[in-house]
Design a protein around this nucleic acid. Structure first.
Lengths: 137, 137
DNA sequence: ATATGTGCAAATCCTTTGCATAGAA
DNA sequence: TTCTATGCAAAGGATTTGCACATAT
């Protein structure tokens, strides 16, 4: 078993997630570097590697990772849920034609002039999406 | 025919939209004041008023209004498309427990430090969602 | 007339679920 | 064993589509 697989197993356990073969496969694909994936993408990458994991398990696993803080879900696209393995503070830039997402460092972009939050509420998060399109010539 | 219905008809025509009875009904519900609605909400309000408009027509109409700039679609909720009749520059605050949206004046909130856009692209829009939750005591 | 819009039901697409089997502790 | 996870197929829910009928110009 590779070192990276050992550390992934440790990471899952640290988040209260039992390390099964399928979860380690998915973790290896997704958690090793910051990226944006959909369930469909994970499924097809697994397939390309010859790993057979069911669609249900892919969804279960991604949702579990998200619930335990290993992934963030992004409601950016009306038809598909994006999972973001960069869990630090950052915003997104999206190419509207392709849907492709890029990260924007949250330390570079700042929001100024936020209003007071409604009474009895606290900040749960801030999502910023800059949408760009191919320039019309 | 009421004055407001006349001005709605003019507004539709000005956006290249033929003014049918159903479209005027929906326009009256949605365009007269800034608000956030889903297709389901529009459908049930029409029903409450005794106006029978099919689900397909509600979707067609809301999408048409959005395509012609009378509404903005919001990809904020993974399961449902919100239509926003405030088409001016503004951001949103969402109560995570209920999904309820509030407007934030974009002149009050400012984004500072936007990066350069990728070459050959132009800004299509900026979406900001401040998510708040009930404060844990 | 001729083009456009509407309504219904069926089709789609993403995601979740029920349940029997397989695997882990 | 005993609990938990997986896989399959079916179910679910929001949205779109095909097509016949109605409406508008």
């Amino acid at each position: 078993m590779s070192v990276s697989q050992e550390s992934l197993r440790a990471k899952l356990l640290a988040h209260g997630i039992g390390a099964t073969a399928q979860r380690l496969e998915i973790a290896a694909l997704v958690l090793n570097e910051p990226q944006h994936v959909t369930a469909e993408v994970v499924l097809s990458r697994l397939g390309a590697l010859g790993r057979r994991v069911s669609k249900a398990t892919v969804y279960n696993t991604l949702n579990l990772f998200a619930a335990r803080g290993l992934l963030r879900t992004l409601a950016i696209d009306p038809d598909v849920t994006w999972f973001d393995s960069n869990t630090g503070p950052h915003f997104h830039l999206q190419q509207v034609e392709t849907g492709v997402l890029m990260d924007l460092d949250a330390t570079a972009v700042q929001l100024v002039g936020l209003p007071e939050l409604p009474l009895g509420t606290e900040l749960a998060g801030i999502d910023v999406v800059i949408r760009v399109r191919k320039r019309a010539e």
